[in-house]
Structure formats: structure tokens, C-alpha cells
Design a binder for these strands. Structure first.
Length: 644
RNA sequence: GCCGGCAUAGCUCAGUGGUAGAGCAACUGAUUCGUAAUCAGUAGGUCCGCGGUUCAAAUCCGCGUGCCGGCACCA
């Protein structure tokens, strides 16, 4: 006699086992029509699921947040059916719902191309129109294996074999087509609607392991209705306009070319932006009581052997040799990171506990031979500069340093326009240096530090560095990709390997703990994200060109030059536009160049010695006497750390 | 690194085996103009590279390089 409690608190009793369909119908025809699935005691179920005991039930309709996941998952099934109908011999694997859509991985001799999309989409619409009900069937492991073996679906068989013994094995069919699936699903393929679209194809390794076969993955997007789909497609278009590669070209900030794959050619305006950020960072580090150093680019292999990098990362290091030396005995490597060099500085002379925590910072230029497929604009490159620092401290100082660090990072991110970011906690990886005791202490210290700093984080198991656990501070780019920028890593291993020590209060020699930390991560990556975050329209203090003084007629040129000079003297970055073009032309040009402030000078301004300031891309204008305009802009262009 | 796609003027792109094109940008000239693209003219190409097929290749084929989208990687 199940008693069903609904969200409004009302209770309905039924004579025997009852399905969601029956309950919904008992409540009313409107709900019976709208209900796609249900939540039973918090767990999402098919409407056809039979409830045998007392339960709390909530129905999921198209409006509910869960609906999108259901629609996307169901669409993935329909995609798989369509593909198998059109391309016999294709094996199915998995097809989950993901952010904004879904994908399905197929195994086929000939990978799919976007040329196949039209036919597949047409077939999908046909399947949706058939509105075949999704039917769930629970089967024994043996029956499931036999079924998929008979179909030649060896990936499905492998999945079933690897399911834990406790797992119920369920199949979902839509018409004649069957898939291994945990569910739940909506009532039938018709519930999907028509607001879906195939987006792209990609290769993907079976089970995400590069030693496994490559599958052909089809990505799609699916929404409640056409309006939502259109909005999503428009959003993608808008995001593409913020792409740093596009803006970098449009604003003439930098370029990349074949002769230096993975290295950035910074143009004058891009370099101005870079240096503005670097100068700002340097001031923040000075305030934070860091000591800046500069260390070598090219170092002997022996150092990398001692640090452990040779063993772990040799394949990703650039090597350098010179002709008059025996290569085997003197192989040099471009540094892939700065930490060993910093330990070498620490090791000069005898260190006292009184010097700790010692914060050693470097804008360190590093080279890493990244796999070709990883390169991405200026965000993933082979030559980059880190805002790197290593804090040598005693173990009990770790938490305080973490608190200081997160405060500094938050301040800096905020100044640069990032109000929010995600934090991931990456713990011990499979391949690592140091024994478990050390890792226990390092992870414990980092957890404690997070607690103390009030940092909310998500776990990222097994993703730590080989020498220690880390916090990763993640920012998102315009196209929705996440990038690790800041990092805070606890390291007990490297001080040991490179024999760093200090004299403790009791006169004994001790190992310092080393904290690796970066805030921007690499300038290249961070500037890429910064460009996308602001869509190239930087706040005044960051803009590479802050003001353009544009003339209307040649007669105004002398005063325009005088005004530009006055602005420059006040420290502003000013361009002069004396071109023989109409002002109607100059305005859109500078909007396109994302210049924050346009000063238009005609005869009237020249006579009255006034400046009219127009904040692009807006239309509003303020008219000020020259000196006042200079003072206003100069105050506004002051970096936030100096403004106080 | 793997799978797929792409590579034509500075940029965006057209050109499916038969004399390389457009718009914008550049340059020259005219115009001196009041807030979202003035007019006219000129110049600009190893059609990514190498090899092959063909009477003939930007176009078809092979190899290489780079870029793009994913996957894998990311100290």
C-alpha cells in the first residue's frame, strides 16, 4: 500500500505497486502530459518505474533543470540509433550528456566527418517523429553479455564485464534499437523535440586512455526549444568574437608563425599590455615581501637529474649542445621551470630560521616541448614566462603562507577583472617522488591551509605534481574552456633532492619546505584570458593605447599635438590621428581598435583650448579645459594598487 | 602524440583540370569635412612546401609543415 508524498506535502495512497505514469494521471491530465520523469526519494527515475513502498515523489517537466540532462542523454541515444541505421557495422560505446549538449563515441573503420551530419540529423528527426517509447529492462550479466556479443558490440561487452557485481544491469530500447544504459530516460523519443544540432566530430580514445583504440566522437547540442538552441548558437558566435587569437590580430597585439611554433611574437601594443601587467605584478610582489631574482635559461643535465625532472619530464625538455663539447658529457637543457635554480640560490651561504619564510620571486622564462596537439594560440605555448615564486619555510608556516597567498591572488584577480574563480585540490599522482609519509603531511598541510584561508575547493584526485599536492586556480576563457592559472604547491621532495637546509632555533640543520606558487601562471596564458575576459576593451589602466586624439581639420593639428603631448607627459599612452579622413571615419576606426578614450579636436576646441572626451564605444561626451582633462584621465588611468 | 578538417593578396573570402579574382587594408591624388566607414586611381600572388599524375594542376594523388576542433598531455 504505497503512500506517495508530493512536494506540496499532500499524500496519495495506492492499492499496490504504482508507476509514475499512474500517479501523474491521478493528479491531473495536465501533469500526465507534462511529466517526463520523476524523482523518487531524491533519485531520478523513469515514469514507468514501479514504486512498491512509501516514497516522496516529484515530477520532472520540461521546465525543470533536470529536463535538459534528460533531453541531451535521450538525444545521444537517438544519435546512436541513427548512426547504426545509416552506417551498419558501426559499434556503439558511450554517449553521455555534457555541458550544453551531449556526445556519442563510435567505433568505425572510417571516422565520421561533418559531411555526414545532414544525413544523420535527418535520420534523427525521423526517429524522434516515430516517438518510440523508451523501455527499460533489467537483465542478468550473462544475458547482457550474450546480447551484445551477438550484435558484435565488443565495447559494450567490455563495459558490462567491468561493472561491479552489485550493479543492476539495465537495457533501454527505443523501437528495435537497444543500448546498455543506467537511465533514466523520458517517455519516448518524441519527448526530445527538435531543438538539437550536431556540432563537431573528434577523435577520442576508448576510456580516455591513449593506449586504447581511437573512437570517432560526434558532439551535439540539445535544448528545450528552438529559442534556447538559437540563443546558444548566438552565444557561441559572440564568444568567437572575443577569441584572443582574433582580437590579437585585430588589435595588432602579437602574432605566431611557423618558424617559432609555440612562441609568441609580441608587437608593440601587445608588449605594452604585457609590461603594464608585469609592472603591476612587480609592485604587488614587492608589497607582499617577495625578493625578485633572475636565474639562468640553460642548465646542465646533471642538475635536472638531481631534481628529478630528467627522470619525469626529459621528453618534454628542449636540449642544447655546443659543437666543441662532448655531447654525452655536457648536455644542457633549457629550463622547463625555475624551482631548481631558486634552490641553488637558497643554498648559497648558510640560511637561518630567522630568514624564513623566504619568498623568492622570478619572472622566469621557461621552455617546454608541449605536444603539438596541445598548442592553442598564446594560451598553451612552448616558450612562456611564469610569475613564479618559491617560498622556503618551516612546516608550521605553510598554512599562514597559504592564507597570505590566496589573499594576494584574490586581490590581483579582482584588480584585473576576475571576480570569481574555481579552486581544485590535486592530490598524489601514481607516478611520484617521496614516500607516503611525506605525501600525508603535505596533503594534510594543504587541507589545513585551505580551511584557514576559507578556500572552497573541489577535489581533483591523482592530479598533483610529482613532487607534491597542489591547489589550482582556474579561470574560464571566452569559449568556455577552463585554464589553470594560479597554483600553490607544497613540496617536501625538492629540498631533499637538492639538499637545501637551514639552521634551526636549536642549532640543528633542517630541511625547509618549499611552496611553489604562481598567480598569473604564465603571462602568455593569462594575457590570452585577460584579452577574452575584456573582449579587448581593457580598463583604462591596462589599455595599450589609452587615448587617441583625432583631428577634424588640419587647422586643429597644432592644438591636437599639444594636447597629446600634455597627456603623454602625464604618463598616458596616447596616439595622434591626424589622417586626412573625416571624423565619421576616425570614430569607427578607433572603436574597432578598442581605444577607451577618444578626444576629437576641431577648430572650436583649438580656439577654446578644451578637450571633448568620448568613452568608446559609447556616444556620451564631456567637455573639459585641457589641464582638467589631463588630470581626470591621468587619475583614472592610475593602476589600482597605486590608487590605493 | 592521436583522429578529423583546413591552408589562395596584409585581413575576410570566391575560384572542381585550360590566361589567378572581389571587398576591406596599403600606396598616390583629390577633398578640409563636427562624432559609427568621402571619391578616384595604382600597386600587390612560389595559390603553405616538396614530389607525382596529366598536353595542361590553386584544383587530382602522395609525403611534409603549420593552423583549427576534439582526445591524450599539461612539472
Amino acid at each position: 500500500m504505497p503512500a506517495i508524498t508530493l512536494p506540496d506535502g499532500s499524500v496519495r495512497a495506492f492499492d499496490g505497486p504504482v508507476t509514475g505514469t499512474t500517479i501523474a494521471a491521478s493528479i491531473g491530465p495536465g501533469l500526465a502530459k507534462a511529466a517526463l520523469a520523476m524523482q523518487v526519494d531524491g533519485a531520478l527515475r523513469d515514469l514507468s518505474h514501479e514504486i512498491t513502498g512509501d516514497a516522496a515523489v516529484r515530477f520532472v517537466t520540461r521546465k525543470d533543470p533536470e529536463a535538459l540532462d534528460l533531453i541531451r542523454h535521450d538525444t545521444a541515444h537517438v544519435l546512436a540509433e541513427a548512426v547504426q541505421e545509416l552506417f551498419p557495422g558501426t559499434q556503439v560505446t558511450i554517449g553521455p550528456s555534457i555541458e550544453n549538449g551531449f556526445y556519442y563515441d563510435f567505433s568505425r573503420n572510417q571516422p565520421f566527418t561533418t559531411e555526414d551530419f545532414a544525413a544523420i540529423e535527418a535520420k534523427m528527426r525521423e526517429i524522434v517523429a516515430r516517438n518510440a517509447p523508451f523501455r527499460r529492462q533489467e537483465v542478468s550479466r550473462e544475458d547482457a553479455i550474450a546480447l551484445f556479443e551477438s550484435k558484435g558490440e565488443r565495447f559494450k561487452v567490455e563495459l558490462i564485464r567491468d561493472l561491479p557485481a552489485s550493479e543492476t544491469i539495465s537495457l533501454y530500447s527505443q523501437g528495435d534499437w537497444v543500448d546498455l544504459c543506467r537511465g533514466p530516460h523520458m517517455r519516448g523519443t518524441g519527448d526530445i523535440g527538435t531543438a538539437f544540432k550536431l556540432m563537431k566530430v573528434a577523435g577520442a580514445y576508448w576510456r580516455g586512455d591513449h593506449r586504447n583504440p581511437v573512437l570517432s566522437r560526434i558532439y551535439g547540442t540539445a535544448w528545450r526549444d528552438q529559442k534556447e538552441l538559437d540563443a546558444h548558437l548566438l552565444q557561441i558566435e559572440e564568444a568567437e568574437k572575443r577569441d584572443h587569437r582574433r582580437i590579437g590580430r585585430e588589435m595588432n597585439l602579437f602574432h605566431l608563425q611557423e618558424e617559432a611554433t609555440g612562441s609568441v611574437f609580441w608587437h608593440p601594443k601587445g608588449w605594452k599590455l604585457y609590461r603594464t601587467v608585469e609592472d603591476y605584478m612587480r609592485r604587488r610582489l614587492d608589497d607582499g615581501e617577495y625578493q625578485e631574482v633572475k636565474t639562468p635559461q640553460v642548465l646542465d643535465r646533471k642538475l635536472w637529474e638531481r631534481s628529478g625532472h630528467w627522470e619525469n619530464y626529459r621528453k618534454n625538455m628542449f636540449m642544447a649542445t655546443v659543437e666543441d663539447q662532448d655531447e654525452a658529457h655536457r648536455l644542457l637543457a633549457l629550463k622547463p621551470m625555475n624551482c631548481p635554480c631558486h634552490v641553488l640560490i637558497f643554498n648559497q651561504g648558510i640560511r637561518s630560521y630567522r630568514e624564513l619564510p623566504l619568498r623568492m620571486a622570478e619572472f622566469g622564462a621557461c621552455h617546454r616541448y608541449e605536444p603539438s596537439g596541445a598548442l592553442h594560440g598564446i594560451m598553451r605555448v612552448r616558450a612562456f614566462t611564469q610569475d613564479d615564486a618559491h617560498i622556503f619555510c618551516e612546516e608550521h608556516q605553510i598554512a599562514d603562507e597559504a592564507v597570505r597567498f590566496t589573499a594576494l591572488l584574490s586581490r590581483i584577480y579582482k584588480d584585473l577583472g576576475f571576480e570569481s574563480f574555481r579552486v581544485k585540490f590535486s592530490d598524489r599522482p601514481e607516478q611520484r617522488a617521496g614516500d607516503d609519509g611525506i605525501w600525508d603531511r603535505a596533503e594534510g598541510a594543504l587541507h589545513e591551509a585551505c580551511l584557514k584561508a576559507g578556500v572552497d575547493y573541489e577535489m581533483n584526485p591523482g592530479e598533483g605534481a610529482f613532487y607534491g599536492p597542489k591547489l589550482e586556480f582556474v579561470l574560464r576563457d571566452a569559449i568556455g574552456r577552463d585554464w589553470q592559472c594560479g597554483t600553490f604547491q607544497v613540496d617536501f621532495v625538492l629540498p631533499e633532492r637538492l639538499d637545501a637546509e637551514y639552521v634551526a632555533e636549536d642549532g640543528s640543520r633542517k630541511r625547509p619546505v618549499m611552496l611553489h606558487r604562481a598567480i598569473l601562471g604564465s603571462f602568455e596564458r593569462f594575457l590570452g584570458i585577460l584579452i577574452e575576459q575584456h573582449a579587448g576593451r581593457f580598463p583604462l589602466w591596462l589599455a595599450p593605447v589609452q587615448v587617441v586624439v583625432a583631428t577634424i581639420v588640419d587647422d586643429a593639428a597644432p592644438f591636437a599635438k599639444e594636447a597629446a603631448e600634455a597627456l603623454r607627459k602625464a604618463g598616458l599612452r596616447v596616439d595622434l590621428d591626424l589622417r586626412n579622413e573625416k571624423i565619421n571615419r576616425k570614430v569607427p576606426d578607433h572603436i574597432a581598435q578598442r581605444v577607451p578614450v577618444l578626444v576629437v579636436v576641431g577648430r572650436r576646441e583649438a580656439e577654446e583650448r578644451k578637450l571633448v572626451l568620448r568613452r568608446l564605444p559609447g556616444r556620451d561626451q564631456v567637455e573639459l579645459p585641457l589641464a582638467e582633462a589631463v588630470a581626470t584621465l591621468s587619475a583614472e588611468a592610475t593602476p589600482p594598487d597605486i590608487r590605493g
